[in-house]
């Protein structure tokens, strides 16, 4: 197990370098950031040159990348063109997005698995068909549509929850955006759980659990669900990345100043330090989540052996 973790961590290095370099190239392909900085006005050549010098923009791309990575290892993400340190931006943005993602993830896990289990145990009955239809509807509608509709209905028309979040990132304000962000993933989790529950409910080991005289609750939770969740956990892990991505859209709808907000600003202003910094952290989170899921997989299924 220890060796496996080390190998996985080593494998992450080329993935990390590859993705960050790709982002680096793409940001630079957007055009000259100094021109973008001055908007419609023509920049003073002397000032522009100074900025280029300061941000290594005159170096060839690969050298810029190397210099950037060098600083990164000292946890220095550089500064934006307006002089703010990217690290401080990260420190305000990421906790907000992580909070939103955590709320959404919790909703996804609890309701996705709950509905899937209910549906699977009542296969072919009303509850099952309702869940199947409802999840299909949720999956077919794009998240931003669900988002704006729920925002209008719940936030504006009924006034049941704040329509926007703004700077007050409190739990109650995050619930509605959390539901929106979770909705599609939740539907997939419910369907996947249903499928695996249906597959396992007639399994021999479930029959054994019943034959042992275990109470139904224990048969369902400790035996049936325990096995059915193995593929669901894998999905949840890879979905964590998708959830972070989805958060960027949800943040725009509900005016949440998280990663999406700053990343958008960074792209519009062609601020490479901001964009690359944010994406780098996203990549790290994504890789870490994946590793965690693989390890969790081994804990959940002892038949899996890492070599």
């Amino acid at each position: 197990m220890g060796r496996y973790v080390i190998r996985r961590l080593l494998q992450m290095i080329p993935v990390f370098i590859g993705t960050t370099f790709l982002i680096f190239v793409m940001v630079h392909a957007l055009g000259d950031p100094v021109n973008a900085l001055f908007g419609d006005r023509a920049p003073d050549p002397a000032v522009a040159e100074k900025i280029r010098e300061q941000y290594n923009l005159n170096d060839p791309l690969w050298l810029q990348y190397l210099k950037y990575m060098g600083k990164l290892f000292r946890w220095d993400f550089g500064t934006t063109f307006s002089g703010q340190s990217v690290t401080s931006l990260l420190a305000t943005a990421f906790p907000t997005t992580l909070k939103l993602t955590a709320v959404a993830f919790t909703i996804e896990v609890i309701f996705g698995i709950g509905l899937g289990l209910l549906s699977g145990l009542r296969r072919g009955r009303v509850a099952d068909n309702s869940v199947l239809i409802l999840t299909l509807v949720v999956i077919s509608i794009p998240t931003f549509v669900t988002g704006y509709v729920l925002q209008y209905l719940v936030g504006v028309k009924w006034g049941a929850a704040p329509a926007t979040v703004g700077d007050q990132v409190t739990l109650d304000r995050l619930i509605l955006p959390g539901v929106v962000l979770a909705s599609v993933s939740l539907a997939y989790v419910a369907r996947l759980t249903r499928t695996t529950v249906v597959e396992n409910v007639r399994a021999d080991y479930v029959r054994t659990a019943v034959a042992k005289g275990l109470p139904r609750r224990r048969v369902v939770v400790n035996h049936l669900l325990r096995n059915s969740l193995i593929p669901v956990v894998t999905f949840l892990g890879t979905d964590l990345g998708a959830l972070m991505g989805g958060a960027l859209v949800t943040e725009r709808i509900f005016n949440i100043h998280g990663v999406g907000y700053y990343l958008y600003q960074g792209i519009v202003r062609q601020n490479s330090n901001t964009v690359v910094g944010f994406v780098t952290i996203l990549v790290i989170i994504y890789l870490a989540a994946n590793l965690l899921v693989d390890l969790l997989y081994a804990v959940l299924d002892p038949r899996i052996r890492y070599a």
């Binding site: 021999d204 080991y205 034959a211 042992k212 005289g213 275990l214 002892p302 038949r303």
Partner: peptide, 25 residues
């Protein structure tokens, strides 16, 4: 009936591999 199962009447199945829960010790 549940209280009789396992306690008063127990059953042994044909295929022990599939009849035991694969993920529990």
């Amino acid at each position: 009936r549940r209280k009789i199962r396992g306690r008063k009447i127990a059953m042994i199945f044909q295929d022990a591999l599939s009849s035991l829960n694969p993920v529990l010790s």
